[in-house]
Write a protein that binds this DNA or RNA. Structure first.
Length: 116
DNA sequence: CATATGACCTATG
DNA sequence: TCATAGGCCATAT
């Protein structure tokens, strides 16, 4: 069911640039699904690995990784985020700094600051 | 059919 | 910042 919505969610997630993050609610909104944030979680859980989606760039509205503390994917996501220079302080990403804004500059503030 | 359970969010106090 | 409440909804039992 909702294959239609799932595909739109996958496309949206695939378009999140490296070094930026998006929240579940944001992905739902961008995919034209209103406030169905939970659906984003379902869609990612069911996403074929073959799609190679950057699922690690999707976090909750509090800037935290949504997986439970002991879950293996939690560490995987943390490692991948750090690998693309997304800083986590006290387990939280500074959304004001790293949230993806479609159409806006796609590089983190630190990078822009270094260029200036 | 009825509950419970999440990779959730926003508003409010 | 924490807690509560209401919204949301596919899946599992």
């Amino acid at each position: 069911m909702n294959e239609d919505a799932y595909e739109r969610i996958w496309e949206t997630v695939a378009s999140i640039p490296r070094g930026r993050v998006a929240t579940y609610g944001q992905v739902a909104e961008l995919a034209g699904l209103g406030r169905r944030a939970r659906l984003v979680g379902h869609a990612l859980q069911r996403a074929p690995a073959s799609l190679g989606l950057p699922w690690h760039r999707v976090i909750n509205a509090r800037g935290q990784i949504a997986f439970p503390k002991n879950h293996a994917n939690r560490r995987r996501q943390l490692a991948r985020l750090r690998a693309e220079d997304v800083a986590l302080r006290d387990g939280r990403v500074d959304l004001g700094r790293y949230r993806w804004r479609p159409g806006a500059a796609e590089w983190p503030e630190e990078y822009l600051a270094a260029e200036r």
